[in-house]
Design a protein around this nucleic acid. Sequence first.
DNA 1: ACCTGAACACCGTTCAAGT
DNA 2: ACCTGAACACCGTTCAAGT
Lengths: 215, 215
Amino acid sequence: VVRAAIAYIDDRGLPELTMRRLAATLGVEAMSLYKHVSGRDNLLDTVVESVVDELSGDPQVQLEPESDWQDYLRRLAHGLRRIALDHPQIFPLIATRPPAAPWIRPPLRSLNWIEAFLSSLRSQGFTDSQTVAAYKAFTSFLLGHLLLEVAHYGAPIGPEETRREGDGLPLGDLKGYPTVRALAQQLSTNTAAQEFESSLENLLGRLAAIRSGKP
Amino acid sequence: VVRAAIAYIDDRGLPELTMRRLAATLGVEAMSLYKHVSGRDNLLDTVVESVVDELSGDPQVQLEPESDWQDYLRRLAHGLRRIALDHPQIFPLIATRPPAAPWIRPPLRSLNWIEAFLSSLRSQGFTDSQTVAAYKAFTSFLLGHLLLEVAHYGAPIGPEETRREGDGLPLGDLKGYPTVRALAQQLSTNTAAQEFESSLENLLGRLAAIRSGKP
DNA sequence: ACCTGAACACCGTTCAAGT
DNA sequence: ACCTGAACACCGTTCAAGT
């Protein structure tokens, strides 16, 4: 039911999703969707929830962390990154939809994952306030990085057009922006994978510092 | 012309903005807006551009950085944060709208600011690739932090409803999530200002490390 | 040069009616 | 219990016509 919506957004894009069109791809005649879901907004919320829960099916991310916390956070971060890259059209929705409670932060989002995150850290030497600080830093890092990575090649892909690396450079329009022009090549090459790794390691180091002392 | 749209989104919210309603608030009869702007998407792009350019009018952020780069980046970051907090309804749009070129990253977004950023760092000891790395790290940090900070109290505010600190906690529904419940109080208190400062300082330290060696 | 009115194709959603 | 058809209020956008 909701799987069809995910598939639809994945290859037609969010703005193309329409109750009538979605119903059409399901063979069903139109607005009998309202028997299964209570409106468009509700449908989108369900889509977000369902995509986030793909984490549960990810063998690389186990819910109960018996290894150390750094390893657990690394696997969790990579699991979320995989989701973002699998659904570049949906991820901004995960980031943007207002959460039920103000402290439920994207992209972790579900109480199951937040509970796992918090209890894992707390059981491994983090005090309460250190755990909360780690949660906030972790979500903030993931959101910023993944949103930008996904936007790099995800968002502007329309139904028919495709883009190549280094494409869309308005080199002629860069008069007056000499530095931008000089660095255009490096700016447009996608190094997101390495950035993700090094930023993640930096964050883990920062959390380790938080754990053993200062805040 | 576009100022009206900004004001409208600021206090009615993005989904409420409609060509017809906007026209109505302008006293004009309806779709003569199309003489001034070429469509709704174009209008939103103009709104984003205009809001970002509020930076230029910010006396705390000077375009030509004669002080050192850390100070410049600090002021720039705070300037963008001020914009985000001034327009909580619009900021997600700044973050989400697909940029013209893939390396134009939110929330910096305009070529003027990207140029200023890059040339400032490059003139103060950063190599080309270090400058680019700094640009990516800086935008990623800002986007993640500000989007979450704004979402905390910005997004779900409807026209009539207001929320208070610690509101909306479904404390009864937290059976099975003991850690979440134990930390609920701390999770829901807004410490974004301090987090912003310490994350920013951490980032500046990281950029300093990048500058002198390792990248 | 700017605004208007009517029209077009399309939305999300409701609801009585069918099976 | 599920689907349908028609209808309602509302969209964004176009365009000939007014001033």
